[in-house]
Design a protein around this nucleic acid. Sequence first.
DNA 1: GTATGAAATTTCATGCTTGAATAATTATTC
DNA 2: GAATAATTATTCAAGCATGAAATTTCATAC
Lengths: 168, 168
Amino acid sequence: MSDPDQRSSAATNTSPALIKQSLRLWLKMLKTTKHVEATIREKLRIEFDTTLPRFDVMAALYRFEEGLKMSELSSALRVSNGNVTGIIERLVADGAVLRVPVAGDKRAMLVRLTHKGREEFSRMAAAHELWINAIFGCLTPDATARLISILDTIEHSQGLVTGEENDA
Amino acid sequence: MSDPDQRSSAATNTSPALIKQSLRLWLKMLKTTKHVEATIREKLRIEFDTTLPRFDVMAALYRFEEGLKMSELSSALRVSNGNVTGIIERLVADGAVLRVPVAGDKRAMLVRLTHKGREEFSRMAAAHELWINAIFGCLTPDATARLISILDTIEHSQGLVTGEENDA
DNA sequence: GTATGAAATTTCATGCTTGAATAATTATTC
DNA sequence: GAATAATTATTCAAGCATGAAATTTCATAC
């Protein structure tokens, strides 16, 4: 508990001016994030002929070398079940991902990167780091840390409680 | 030039630790933004049976009472031309939007909210403000202002130059 | 062992989003 | 004023994303 800038209670401001400021912040946040995201998408498309969803799936599978079940994957990425099915289908078709049945459970499927998939992602991740650094490197370590801290506060705001929260 | 926390040059950090920190910030930013966005989407769906893209389009049209051309709309929302066509089609079908030809230019179409559309959006906007405030109200005005400032720095970072930049 | 419910995945309908191609109109240049 | 270029909007194919329904398999209770 050492955040002098952030209220510990979930008190809701009601002053019109503060509400407008919150709205302004949200629009700014959305704009900036989408701007960065669009840049990354474009670079992935131009330089690697791939998409952000594919990149995200591969990143998760890269991390879990032993593979993930479809349901684990969708909950790790916080997307719907049916969504992952389609993305994996295309990755399998491209030889980047392998599906293996789970011993002892005929329902489940284990999904993992192929050797080709791992190598591809490795190259993409390296480039990705550079892109991100080119964008966020303009901030001082201090500003970066503070931003992370504020974002954390927002994320745990009472306005965002949904029931299930889990970090990988 | 009064941002002691933000570098004025576009120097790119190359230290591995700083790169990792930038990456961490980006992932956090993405996660928080998507979390908020998902909350808004769900509320729009449950309480107003509508979607965020529709809300965004209506917000733009609400602001420009006299109406907007399709191209103005898509550039205001920073989405593709073809995208807006589909959303407007559905809004017209629902009686929330009206299309009127532009005098003197047979190519262009002026799009504006109907009376029903204005009233609908008015109610949604009021609720939207409350939702946003419930989420971001946990920040002090100072933290909010600083966050906006840092986001601004990111947005104008050299890593994000795309060619055309324009604010409404 | 059979019924019942839970879990894992896929399928489906709908809508969003993009970039590219097309079509129609307007503006410019020779 | 005819050829050329630019603007405006739609159409199209592909992929992403959701929530709901359907399917298969597993676990539990009886």
